[in-house]
Design a binder for these strands. Structure first.
Lengths: 250, 250
DNA sequence: CGTAGCTTTGATGTAGGTCAAGAAATGTGG
DNA sequence: CCACATTTCTTGACCTACATCAAAGCTACG
């Protein structure tokens, strides 16, 4: 299929791919989207894109690269609240509401489209369908934070890890960056530790254990699901909340 | 001060008290509010008010009593995600979006006002100021979930407990149910355990420790801050995000 | 090709879990 | 208002999951 329509080219973006999983987007939705999507910015690894307590911020849509949102505790430790992968919103809340209560930092070099508050709101009124899709995505993100909380509160280290890798896989599949076999993953064991509330040393041991049990292998920047079904079984992963294939709203 | 205006009587409700902390509400805001606030329902202890996976739900505003939202894990353990106290919204997300991904259960007998989706949206368009206040409250709730996640990931049991009690105190103060001295609290040590990711036994030990250190006393359904400043110091509680006194938006 | 950041592994320590059992509260029916 | 039942609290003894410390092998990249 050959198309020269510049609007349609946005269909290649992870953002559009993801939202298409929620809502069937019309040509005019896509037009508004590619308009909002225009202002590209680059960010270097380790330099905060969004900083705690800042006001009047933009939101961003991640076009490429990975980022994480985190909070620093007095004492130097930090807790990573969530990772962002291509297609994800950053700082949506700090635009819709006003609070930016945590930092966001690129893990790899990042390309992101800046979305000004007024543009976002304008886009929402112009295309309510798009608004629905974005709110849906936001609500999914929140559901993930809650699952993450459950991880930390009531799952063992290996269950946490397994659950985390499955969830990440499901998210990446949504934007075509993973399949049932596995995915490329730039996260260091330190990052995993900060996300899962473990020490880096223990992350290493847990990964070894999962590998030796023939469930998942995470080595050399690649996660391979050696036995997807067994892994799902092991962690009691609720496929329902992330596994949707095909648009939910027609 | 004597007033017979039925609209003004809503000012006594915890809901109005709380929102007033965010936004100065006009008489017409209050009128819309008392309208939305009308349909009262009662709920008995232990019977789910909102059930996972249910669609087409109402939201509720808690008028009296306490509730908690939680997730059950296969294996029987559960994780309490958040508690709801008078003035709090229940199931706001399941109305604004569509997902109800966790259960809500009364801890004490509960009185709540049912808010239908259409009424809520109508109220929002009629009084944008009210919408702002509600969204602000929702965003505060989300910030609390994130703090809770940090608790579970990176704080010790006693820091968690201390942080939790301070946060609860701050929330209750907003609706006039607590002061710097302390507050009445119907939570059992089992509930605390399920919220803080601990065992009930350890909750008991932690409470004893905090009491013996002269920081807080939680006994006979009452939390007493024996040394508020020291407690804040101990847990590195970020007063900024909950401590606001007086309306933020005029 | 050296230096800095990852990963891997072992040895040892500790926070918090589990089990058990008695003491207070709280509730319920008579 | 009392006897009995149920839940909640409290404490002790013991155990395990995970942290911390330490050190060696990898990668990678300026």
């Amino acid at each position: 299929m050959i198309d020269r329509d510049p609007v349609l080219s946005i269909l290649d973006s992870p953002f559009a791919r993801k939202l298409s999983a929620f809502v069937r987007l019309s040509h005019s939705d896509l037009a508004v989207m590619s308009d909002v999507y225009r202002r590209r910015r680059s960010f270097a690894v380790g330099v905060d894109m969004i900083h705690q307590g800042q006001t009047d911020q933009s939101a961003y849509v991640l076009a490429s690269g990975w980022a994480c949102s985190y909070k620093i505790l007095p004492g130097g430790t930090r807790q990573i609240v969530d990772f962002q992968v291509p297609g994800d919103f950053l700082g949506l809340r700090s635009v819709l509401f006003r609070t930016s209560d945590h930092n966001v930092e690129p893990i790899t070099p990042v390309q992101a489209s800046e979305v000004k508050q007024r543009d976002l709101l304008a886009a929402f009124t112009a295309t309510p369908r798009l608004a629905t899709a974005v709110l849906w995505a936001a609500s999914r993100d929140e559901a993930m934070v809650v699952e993450h909380l459950v991880d930390l509160g009531r799952r063992t280290a290996s269950e946490r890890m397994a659950h985390f890798l499955l969830e990440l896989g499901a998210r990446l599949r949504l934007v075509g960056m993973a399949d049932r076999a596995g995915f490329a993953c730039p996260l260091s064991q330190y990052l995993l530790a900060d996300a899962l509330g473990l020490s880096a040393v223990h992350v290493n041991r847990v990964l070894r254990e999962l590998r030796e049990d023939g469930l998942v292998t995470f080595q050399k920047g690649r996660v391979v699901f050696d036995d997807y079904e067994a892994l799902v079984e092991f962690t009691a992963f609720d496929r329902a909340y992330l596994d949707h294939e095909g648009p939910l709203l027609i």
